[in-house]
Design a protein around this nucleic acid. Structure first.
Lengths: 195, 195
DNA sequence: AATACAAGCGGACCACGGTCCGTTTCGCCT
DNA sequence: AGGCGAAACGGACCGTGGTCCGCTTGTATT
């Protein structure tokens, strides 16, 4: 009776001990491999071997290679979300909404640049994750509301977040000869026009 | 001496007759397969077999699967660009710049929705193609200039195009419970705020 | 402690994208 | 016409992502 009744817990009926151990081992193995040779080294076979388990186990735990990438990203994303919810201003609560919004953009730009390789490797699994885009969109939407912006805030939030996407940034900075600072200035100007 | 001198032609030193024949056969085979069973049926082996050539030939012509997809898209994209350059208003020249810009958005939305599967399958090859994003960005930039908008027009153009990207549309319409009409309304409102 | 059963595990197996290199074909030049 | 170099061809081959199914292990129950 030490574990909560199934009816009271969330959907997943808990994970068996060995499964949890393997998940941790796999994530660690993946992180090590990536530190060594980048995302290209993240072969399912390689990760499995390094963690000392069979390949089937990797797929059982993460569903696909993209799922594994998404799990690796989750750590950073969770940290970032924590910074938004309860971190220090101007990203966290307490600052002027406009300052928070601009800090959001700068922070998101940094995150996307730092994790670009993983995010691209995670592909659709990451993109379709409601907990990611959904959180950012909700946050921006609330800030827009605080700023007294009128109109379809759900759409405006999405439209402000879209130019911060990894492919767009890659195009602008890696191919379009813009600096990160110019991109951020551009985005700031965009925000000022919208609010 | 019937062919122009190499110095006068563009970079590619022309394509051999058999190569051109095979390219056409492969594109047709690919189009047929896609009409039958969607992008999933577009296996390199399947396309090659259907066209009656070896697999190596497909890679020689298109470089990769994504390259093949991009080539399939090129037809539609070229038609669309022609519509922008010399088609009837409001998309083509002759209408008020704002009307042209809004027509651009609507038209681009349609195109991206229609070709979504192919565009996603083309992945980076399509995204990095300057002739595609570059053209759209330049067009929007010119329209913004005509409208007398000030600021970093290059960035603003990109920022207006970003929310029309396939992944964003998919998120909004397929997962976010918005209709295409709502998305278009939202984009229109975004444009009005920016200009 | 013994039992029962679900959950997890492993690695052989498959399909597909991509490469490579010996052979064939094209098209120009004499 | 015949010869020659370059371009194109084809299909065997490889690595990787993903599936499948018989076996093992953990956990709840008595």
């Amino acid at each position: 009776m030490s574990r909560p009744l199934p009816l009271l817990t969330g959907a997943p009926p808990a994970e068996r001990a060995d499964a949890a151990r393997n998940r941790a081992a796999l994530l660690e193995a993946a992180a090590e491999l990536m530190a060594g040779c980048g995302v290209a080294a993240l072969t399912m076979d390689a990760v499995a071997t390094r963690a000392g388990v069979g390949k089937g186990t990797v797929f059982r735990r993460f569903g696909s290679r993209e799922g594994l990438m998404a799990s690796l990203l989750n750590h950073r994303e969770a940290e970032w979300q924590a910074g938004v919810i309860s971190g220090p201003p101007p990203l966290g609560p307490g600052a002027d909404p406009l300052d928070r919004l601009l800090a959001f953009g700068a922070s998101r730009l940094r995150l996307h640049r730092d994790q670009a390789a993983l995010i691209e490797a995670a592909g659709a699994v990451w993109g379709e994750n409601h907990a990611v885009l959904g959180f950012a969109a909700l946050h921006v939407r609330l800030l827009l509301a605080e700023l007294g912006v009128e109109g379809d805030l759900r759409y405006l939030a999405t439209a402000l977040i879209a130019p911060l996407g990894v492919p767009v940034l890659r195009q602008q900075i890696d191919h379009g000869q813009m600096t990160e600072a110019q991109v951020l200035d551009g985005w700031t100007e965009l925000v000022r026009r919208v609010v």
